[in-house]
Every structure is written in C-alpha cells, then in structure tokens.
Simulated assay, not measured.
Amino acid sequence: MNGFDWSHFGAVTAASVLVLAVLQAATFLVGRRIGRYNVVDVTWGLGFVLVALVAALVGDGDALRRWLMAVLVAVWGLRLTWHMYAKSAGKGEDPRYEEMLERAGGNSPGVVIRKIFLTQGFAQWFVSLPLQVSAVVGPASGLATGVAVLGVVLWVVGVVFEAVGDHQLKQFKADPANKGEIMDVGLWAWTRHPNYFGDSCVWWGLWLIAASVWPGPVTVLSPLVMTYFLVFATGARLLEKSMSQRPGYPDYQQRTSYFLPLPPKR
C-alpha cells in the first residue's frame, strides 16, 4: 500500500470509537460504584493504548510504523495508567470534578456522562488521530524517515521528563521533612510542570512519526489540542490556581519557568 485509503481509515477509526466507547462506559460504571469519577484519569492513558493496538491490528499501512506507534504509546500509556491508579487509590473525589459537576447542575448520570465521559472519549479519539491516520499509509523514505526518527527522539525526551518528574515528586512527598514545602528541585527547578511538558513532547513526537507520511501532517491539531489541555484547560492552569494559595508558591512562580524548561532564576 502506498497512498491513503479512506475505507481502511474508516475501519480503523470506527474500531477506535468502539473500544473507547466500551472503555468509557466501563469506567463510568466503576466510578458510579465507588462514588468518585476521578477514576476517569486512570483510563486516560489506557484509552490511547487501546486505540494504538486497534490501529496496528486493523490498519494495513506500513507494519513497522504501526507497531512502532503501538509500542511507544503502550510504554507511555501503561506507565501513566499505573501512576494515576497509585496516585488516586484510596482517596476521595478530585476537586476539579466536584467543581465541574456543581457548575453543570449536579451529578446525575446524564450530566456525569456528558461532562466527563463523553468529553474524555471524544478527546481521546481526536488526539489519537495521528495514530489512526498513519496506520493506513505506506512506508516513509528519504528525508521523511529522518522526520520519524526525530519524532522518536522527542518521544524519548517526553517520557523521560514525565516519568522522572513524577518520580521526583513522589519521593519528595514521601519525606516527612518536606511536608508543607514546595517541590523546587530536580526537573521541578527548571519547569513548574515537568510531567505536563513531557506529556506534550510525547504527543508531538508521535505526530512527527505520523507526519513522515502524507496525510499525517494534517493531524497537527491533535498535538495542539493535547498541549492546550495540558497548559491551559485541565492541566497546569487548574493546578496553578490551587497551588498559588500555598505559602512559598508565588516565589516559586517567580523563579521557575511555567512550562518550557529553562534555567532557574536566582
């Protein structure tokens, strides 16, 4: 196969919608049973893993790229799934969801499904479009191969930032001497959100792999939307809103870059 086949893309995206719908339905039922909907954060990364696997199995494009994408997404997504599970296990509802549902008029099943689960399911489908599109296109060649390699490098940078940042924060919180203190060492001295920055790099890296073949470049809105979520919508901005009330955080904001890693100011 050398070009883009709409029928094969339709099969991949239909299968992706199906697995995401099943995942979100199951997550809603679990959330309803345990009385908290932040369980949806646990299945965020898992949804992308399922889409990448579906794309690799259903797509008929270049096999090397299909399975490379599946492996890269699985490494990122399964680590994130485990991290979010360990982070939320035994704890109550996330204040973000409480506030969201309160603004929406309550936590009736219809409101919860519409505001949380349908929104997340659609976001997973849209952000994963580079995976779906690249799964039905033939192999790259020449300069395009170099673009794909650059994408893998950027993915590595992203995974390292995200995993190391999460580990450093976990170790910091585990030390009783740091109770009430602001995490400002390691990667956290260079950016206030190394995990979100890493997440963004992961998806720009995956997009570059997809962009190595046409029409992969047209899926650029997917990493842009992911970055918007991470920086402005549900990620760093909301965290900054709550953290800015803590003693010492305004000083930390003054000396440390918001998102992009930069040398700390004195």
Rank of each mutant, 00 (worst) to 15 (best):
V133W: 08
E93K: 12
Y85H: 13
M100G: 01
Y85S: 01
G121H: 07
N107A: 15
G105H: 04
G77D: 09
L129I: 11
K87I: 01
L101S: 06
L80Q: 07
I113G: 00
G121I: 06
F117Y: 15
A86Y: 05
L129R: 02
K115G: 01
F122A: 15
L78R: 00
S88L: 13
V111F: 02
W82H: 11
P95H: 07
G77K: 06
P130E: 09
G121T: 08
L129N: 02
V73C: 05
V75E: 10
G77T: 07
L78P: 01
K87L: 13
A89G: 03
S88K: 09
A104L: 02
L118E: 01
Y97D: 09
M84K: 03
V75A: 14
V75M: 12
Q120W: 13
K91M: 13
R96C: 14
M84G: 01
S108Y: 06
V111W: 02
L118S: 05
N107L: 01
K115A: 15
L129M: 15
L129Y: 06
F122G: 10
D94R: 12
L131T: 10
F117A: 03
V71L: 15
L78G: 00
G105T: 11
A70D: 01
L78Y: 00
M84W: 03
R103E: 13
Q120F: 12
V133N: 04
F117W: 02
E98I: 05
N107H: 05
V127L: 06
R114N: 11
T119D: 03
G106S: 10
R114F: 13
